[in-house]
Nucleic acid binder design. Structure first.
Lengths: 122, 122, 122, 122
DNA sequence: GTGGTCTAGACCACC
DNA sequence: GTGGTCTAGACCACA
């Protein structure tokens, strides 16, 4: 289910977080769905349990999931997917600002958006 | 001329690289222009010369500048500004792909672009 | 395993890079093999860890190895040995061109090649 | 007459030396020919006179040229061109050894030599 | 434990 | 003066 790339510079726990958020955003993980246990997920993707634990803890601190002692971790229910999308849009805005700083024209950006959204989803 | 934020988590030498690339991209630094010397820039922005040196060396390895022992560092002359913009556009494309993955609509993105490009440049 | 000559004018980190590339080329170091840790190698060959680190980082930037924080450095897996050999052959071509410029005859070169390849490997 | 590339990593005085040796090797500069004066050559190619002087001094130390006070520098006459070619062949031998170390086959090298020597001289 | 960044201060080659 | 290399020793993030 989860794919992590050890060669990638972004830390493993961040990759995990990102994928979980993506699944929530898309609707694969719904509010109150149970996440895999730290230990099982760790062995599944071949990483240290501490790493999975760190990802879960950060997600919990940010309110995207909640943990129940002795039961596991679950997706939070308060418009989580919308919060995630807002975060992502903030990222996008930052990116656009970068482009503007480099004096890249609006048209170039629109062109790229058209191109990306025309492609079939893989 | 250069502003670095020592508190920021992004490494100082990366901040430096980014600003130099920005200046090239905008046209403030033109091909064959001389960059400040390692030592002078280091004292200017209050960091160790090694840190500036690392930034310069990485820029050189990436072909954006060239260094001449005993003379200084200079902006490379091969359409450097265009190469930088292309790199940036690649970043943007990656970002748009991210948005698409999160099932964010094209309209949202267009909206944000309009918003950013309407603002006065600071 | 690695031998560096501190007297030599070629920088230590370059000597290191060269030997690592040689080992990859020969097949002593295979894709995804782990390189010695920065610190252990540094003490082994009696240099500063920063020096080893610089060698590793340059090899990474050039795509020959990849590093994972908290785990170590590993040989890259994309036909790295072939890429290195191609680089070397480019060097050779440049060298032959030099000889031609100096109006050295082809026969002289062939003679030397025979001589070198006849010798026992040390 | 002389072409120096400031962007090149090899020091200017080395580039100069190399070109003078090349001209001797080819026969453009003959024994007892006069080399341009340090100052005139320096202004011609736009470098510091010290740099030209250093090149000349090293060539003199190595016996390729001789200087006469108040008159200038001249090409030495004792089989200079042959000495240069021998030096170059030593370089070539070193290069071939490098190739052998990387387990590159003799055939590959022969192939490249054929290729280079088939080309028209530019 | 690992690699990555940074400082302080030294020495060298080149111009 | 310039950039390039190296050491010693520190601190951080990641696993």
């Amino acid at each position: 289910m989860f794919i992590i790339d050890i060669q990638n510079k972004v830390p493993i726990f961040e990759q995990l977080k990102k994928q979980i958020l993506e699944f929530i955003s898309i609707g694969i993980l719904l509010p109150n769905d149970k996440l895999p246990s730290v230990r099982s997920l760790a062995t599944d993707i071949g990483v240290n349990p501490n790493t999975v634990s760190k990802a879960y803890q950060e997600l919990e601190n940010q309110g995207y999931i909640y943990s129940v002692k002795g039961k596991g971790c679950f997706i939070a229910d308060n418009q989580t997917d919308q919060l995630i999308k807002d975060d992502k849009l903030d990222d996008f805005k930052g990116c656009v600002n970068e482009m503007k700083k480099h004096q890249i024209t609006k048209d170039k950006l629109l062109e790229i958006i058209e191109e990306v959204y025309k492609e079939e989803t893989v």
